[in-house]
Design a protein around this nucleic acid. Structure first.
Length: 263
DNA sequence: ATGGTTGCGTAGCAA
């Protein structure tokens, strides 16, 4: 089973690239972020035609998340239950699998804009609510995978120029601490379970030829519960779509889960 | 040097 996450920065603009990518990378489930479209604008039929189902939590202009999956999606949860928030940043679903159901979360964590800003405070409080909710989810669903744009580079090796980024938003210690509290629940960063190239990133600013210079950050992550982590045999960032014409500023991240012969 | 790019929506904000 392959699961993936991709911040597409407008599904309307990126739909052809998402469909092309799914054709070439027929994953079982793809978590999307930053749809930037309302619920009634979600292009369901295009995914159905490609052999997928979908569940989504849309929002006009900002945010919006989805899970596109081959399997039936059950027990859909939109938003963090305890958080009174109009921003659409979370959707969760249980994927029916012969080898055992898997709970999938598609998360678009707040960007935070700038350290000390109102949006930064919102980011930290949102992370605390996410932690509390994921603690409950882990208890309910031992086989839990949380995929998305976390807007946090966990370590200096996830930053192209740590000295320049020191203390900046996406890298600051309070944000890293908030991310670490997710790992403290028992979740593990699938990408770091395997040897990786140095300077592996998942996001590159549109400006200043950042992708060409590989001036990026690793802020898109696949977090796996203790029950799933041993089943994960690979986790890779697919840089190719970032080189497309009119690309998203993020690259997809793909994790492979081996359930044995059944799946 | 405080720039630069993209998307949304049609000015200026968010990322």
């Amino acid at each position: 089973m392959k699961i993936a996450t991709w911040n597409v920065n407008s599904l309307k603009v990126r739909l052809p690239q998402v469909l092309d990518w799914l054709r070439d990378n027929p994953v079982d489930a793809l978590c999307l972020q930053e749809l930037k479209l309302d619920d009634d604008k979600f292009p369901l039929q295009a995914f159905v035609d490609a052999g997928y189902q979908a569940q989504w939590a849309g929002q006009k202009t900002y945010n919006g998340v989805a899970i596109v999956a081959r399997q039936d999606c059950l027990d859909i949860q939109r938003n963090i239950p305890a958080l009174d928030d109009h921003q659409r940043r979370i959707i969760a679903a249980t994927l029916k699998c012969p080898a055992g159901d898997v709970r999938i979360v598609s998360a678009y964590c707040p960007n935070g804009q700038a350290v000390g800003s109102e949006k930064y405070a919102y980011k930290l409080s949102w992370y605390a609510a996410l932690r509390d909710w994921l603690s409950d989810e882990l208890a309910r669903f031992p086989r839990l995978a949380v995929l998305g744009d976390y807007n946090v580079a966990p370590e200096d090796r996830d930053v192209h120029d740590p000295a320049k980024w020191e203390g900046e938003v996406l890298v600051s210690q309070p944000e890293r601490d908030a991310f670490q509290r997710l790992l403290d629940l028992g979740l593990s960063d699938a990408f770091r379970q395997f040897p990786q190239e140095e300077k592996s990133f998942s996001w590159w600013d549109y400006r200043r030829f950042a992708f060409r210079r590989n001036a990026g950050l690793r802020i898109d992550h696949v977090l796996l519960s203790p029950a799933l982590q041993p089943l994960c045999s690979a986790c890779v960032i697919d840089k190719a779509p970032r080189g497309n014409e009119q690309p998203s500023d993020h690259a997809p991240v793909v994790a492979t889960l081996d359930f044995g012969s059944a799946s």
